[in-house]
Amino acid sequence: MKSLFLLVLGNTEMNTPGTVPEPTKLKPVTDAEYLFHEKPLTIDTMPITPEGYPAPVIITKAAKELAGFPVLVVRGGTYLAPLVPHIHISNAVGRDPGKKPALPEFGEIIKRARLLGEELNKSPIDELVIGESIPGGTGTAQAVLWALGYSEGTNSTSQETPQNPEESAILGAFKRAGIERGELRNNPLEALRQFGDPAMAAAVGLSIGFRRRVVLAGGTQMLAVSAVLKALGESLDRFMIATTKWTVNDRRAPFLGITKELGVITYAADLDFSKSEFSQLKSYCEEPMNEEAGAGGATWLAVKAGFSPADISAKVEELYERLVGM
């Protein structure tokens, strides 16, 4: 099976009050650049999270270097363009849904991404693996899921009792829009307009345009994409969500419960850094980590190519050692 890995980039103003640090705003472009180079090019920084952990893109890079699968970067809507070859869909950044509709350009983004998917459908590619990089995307995805009647990201059954700042931001967005949870279950495009982000809209368009097998590589973001596709009448039989075991095992969010409700199969990459000599890599096994940069889908491609999760974990160790030695 001929597969193509797409990394869709996006930015959103949700959950980023005040002055947004440049590394956070530029994370999508630095993720894309690191996939092709030893370190990002736009700014001189290492691919790490704000907490100092290695960003999940290091897993994607490890799988890419081992398996050699082709990677195409798609700019769904970012502050800057990455300094690598890429396809431009939009430069429209998602707004803060607490203040205004988040994505008034969603229609144009979906239209252009769908055209790209249709062109890829004319190629010999049998499988499209779609990953995403968008800081704050977990919040927009949770908001869309809530609008469609799913409960990802909270164990609360009441809209009156937010469990964390992210949930508070979502409830603020619902109040601004005058929408109750589940009210848009039959209007997924309005859910995207009010609460979505450009990476999500681009992934929806690509998935509609490409009519063969699609692997949605991510966590909450790809749950939201799947939910939108299902609400639009797409059969999820040709779809799979590929993520990591850390996402599946995260007790904060009922990931498997929603995939079962959606009727979409899943793959959870069984990577293990518990015995790593680097405490920063051990953190993947100790703290819940958001899925980013299509790490689970990239691992899926490497495993299909004959590499074991242990091989990929070892390659991540090698890449991290190179980073800290620079």
Rank of each mutant, 00 (worst) to 15 (best):
N290R: 11
D250M: 05
L35A: 10
D44R: 08
S156T: 14
K122L: 15
A203V: 04
A305T: 06
G137C: 14
Y320S: 02
P21L: 12
G325E: 15
V214C: 05
N11G: 09
A32Y: 04
S283P: 00
G117I: 02
S308T: 11
E152S: 12
G76Y: 00
V204K: 00
V84R: 00
V248K: 15
V8K: 07
L206W: 10
N155D: 15
E118W: 08
I241N: 04
G136N: 14
A242H: 10
R211C: 07
G94Q: 00
R252P: 06
T161M: 07
T259V: 13
H88E: 13
I179Q: 02
L223C: 05
T243Q: 03
G117S: 04
W246V: 04
V214A: 04
P162H: 10
F307N: 07
I48M: 07
P40D: 09
T220P: 11
K39Y: 10
F307Q: 05
G76R: 01
E234G: 03
Q142G: 04
N164V: 01
L7Y: 05
A298T: 01
L206R: 01
E234W: 01
I110E: 03
F255S: 04
L128V: 14
G209P: 09
P309R: 00
L319R: 05
W246F: 15
L223N: 03
V248S: 13
A269P: 09
L128Q: 11
Y150W: 11
E22L: 15
D270N: 13
T244V: 10
A298C: 05
V248F: 14
N91I: 06
S3K: 15
P70F: 02
T12V: 13
E167D: 12
G296V: 02
T140H: 01
K25W: 12
L145V: 05
Q280H: 08
Y150K: 07
E132P: 05
D31L: 11
G325V: 12
L83R: 05
T49N: 00
V29K: 05
S168H: 11
K282R: 15
R212K: 15
I48E: 08
G137T: 13
E38V: 07
E167F: 11
K275G: 08
G136I: 12
A293G: 07
A147W: 01
P288I: 09
N121F: 15
K99I: 12
E13C: 07
A201L: 03
W146M: 11
K2Y: 12
Y320G: 00
L6Q: 10
S133P: 14
A32G: 09
K230W: 00
L115P: 02
E160R: 08
P40M: 07
L301C: 01
P47A: 06
L223V: 09
K64C: 04
T138K: 02
G196F: 02
Q142R: 14
E287A: 12
A302R: 01
V29G: 09
E286H: 08
L128H: 13
G68S: 00
E51N: 05
R213F: 08
K27W: 14
F195P: 13
T220K: 04
R251W: 09
L301F: 04
Y53P: 00
K275W: 09
I87H: 03
Y284F: 05
K111E: 03
L103P: 03
G98Y: 03
T259S: 13
K27Q: 15
Y150P: 08
L184F: 03
